[in-house]
Design a protein around this nucleic acid. Structure first.
Length: 425
RNA sequence: GGAGAGAUGGCCGAGUCGGCUGAAGGCGCUCGCCUGCUAAGCGAGUGUGUGGUGAAAGCUGCACCGAGGGUUCGAAUCCCUCUCUCUCCGCCA
């Protein structure tokens, strides 16, 4: 959420930022409602002031055993007026709220302009796509042949777009989770979190999934709870409604969770394999930062995520999302994309964003500086470190051999009980 | 699922028959004094949000005692609804 004052004073800029995202909002409606709200608020406050003062008089008169009846009657009138005005006020506030909650973050100045993902810019690249000497198979074919992935059975159990891992496949998923967590906690200093996998509406609103993106979420019937679409939601909300101390920063958390996404509107995309599922595992990185260092923190968070791919020797690149492709809450986002040989393209495996104070304002996460009055909003950041299912897909495809077996990256072998290769038998 | 208790400022914790309580007291924190260092001690200050005014320090309005509604001239205090937390019983991995 942007600050209302900021929106009011930067109408054109907000409008422009919206346009850059290919979005639009009617700022005229906002302007009108905002002006009305302020006018009425001034009236209300004046009346309440009067009432406070007079009530004090009444109290004094009663103590002195004087007759205060006429003042009481007058104040009865005032209270009625206030009540009326308050009703009007809340109407305007609802309008403003809806508009402001629906305004996405303003992109950072370093974000390239562009209309969609085709205009994202390359930030850096690591490794070279492997040469196979045969046509690389898609990971679902490899996985099914090795009997470590079974999508058909998963759809029998639940439905389309759910994964079922078996044997070495299940082990591989688990190994990756541990591998990722160990690096982030042991080498990069993140604190491990294991949060609830369902959250309430307030938390979802705090990080920006609600109210605008309800259609992407799974809701629990009979409860106002939602399955988390990412650990970002429960982990960022750890500090919801808190005032942190300047000395605590940066606060770095990492969490493994399953993620649940209904992915409305993505029909027909990636219908096969692990790339796009209603449920997938992810190790997430979340940071709380001082405003002045948040962009440095974004760079280091990005590196922390990339480390995983380097250790796994998976070729990848980093792109900076352009204004048209950046997410609703983010001010700047890097996507890490891993090479998928069967498709001959790089596919997103991590998304690292700085939200600046956008989420902090919604979730009310602030901090205090030593010796300074008042509070400031913190900056929040997060990134995948990494999406586990997509990592499995990348390993199966990049490490496949002509005989259908898959060579396990060396760094992962300790987590696989020393296993070097997944074979059919 | 059944029975009970509770929700107050950064934290702990008072709030009497509704008015002088934005909130006692303590802790913590900040500044100053004192002390050979540390500790202790002494003094002063210290909520959040939002608006006005001011160059600034500051002054000042309004709101906020879990959330929402109600009663009243006036509510942290009374009434209703909801949420959450805790304890006991039952059930359960």
């Amino acid at each position: 959420m942007l600050e209302i004052k900021f929106v009011r004073q930067n109408l054109e800029r907000v409008q422009a930022a919206l346009a850059a995202r290919g979005d639009a909002a009617d700022m005229k409606v906002f302007e009108d409602a905002d002006e009305q709200r302020r006018t009425i608020l001034a009236q209300i406050e004046e009346l309440r002031h009067k009432r406070n003062v007079v009530s004090e008089q009444i109290a004094q008169m009663k103590r002195d055993r004087e007759d205060a009846e006429s003042l009481v009657l007058e104040m009865r009138e005032v209270s009625a007026t206030v009540k009326e005005l308050e009703k009007k006020l809340s109407g305007h506030e609802a309008v403003i709220d809806e508009i402001v909650m629906g305004i996405p973050n303003i992109p950072h100045e370093s974000v390239p302009a562009g209309k969609d993902e085709t205009e994202n810019t390359l930030y850096r690249k690591w490794g070279e796509p492997p040469e196979f000497g045969f046509f690389p198979k898609p990971h679902w074919e490899i996985g099914e042949a090795l009997k470590i992935l079974d999508f058909e059975t998963a759809s029998k159990i639940t439905g389309a777009r759910f994964p079922l891992y078996m044997g070495a496949g299940a082990r591989l998923e688990r190994a990756l989770i541990n591998f990722m967590l160990d690096i982030q906690t042991g080498e990069h200093g993140y604190t491990e979190i294991l949060p609830p996998f369902m959250v309430n509406r307030t938390s979802m609103t705090g990080t920006g999934q609600l109210p605008k993106f309800a259609a992407d979420l799974f809701k629990i019937e009979g409860w106002d709870y939602f399955l988390i679409p990412t650990a970002e939601v429960p982990v960022t909300n750890i500090h919801q409604n808190q005032i942190l101390d300047e000395s605590e920063f940066p606060i770095c958390y990492t969490a493994f969770t399953p993620c649940f996404r209904s992915e409305a509107g993505s029909y027909g995309k990636d219908t096969r394999g692990l790339i796009r599922q209603h449920q997938f595992n992810k190790v997430e990185l979340v940071k709380f930062s001082l405003p002045e260092t948040s962009y440095d923190e974004l760079e280091s968070l990005l590196e922390n995520a990339e480390t995983i791919l380097k250790r796994l020797e998976l070729p990848h690149r980093v792109v900076t999302l352009c204004t048209g492709d950046i997410g609703f809450s983010a001010a700047k986002t890097y996507d890490i994309e891993v090479w998928i040989p069967s498709q001959g393209v790089y596919r997103e495996i991590s998304s690292c964003s700085n939200f600046e104070d956008f989420q902090a304002r919604r979730a009310n996460i602030r901090f205090k500086r030593k010796g300074k009055k008042g509070t400031e909003l913190v900056h929040t950041l997060n990134g995948s470190g990494l999406a586990v299912g997509r990592t499995v897909a990348a390993i199966l495809e990049n490490c496949q051999t002509g005989d259908g077996s898959v060579i396990i990256p060396e760094a992962l072998r300790p987590y696989m009980g020393g296993l070097e290769r997944i074979t059919g038998s």
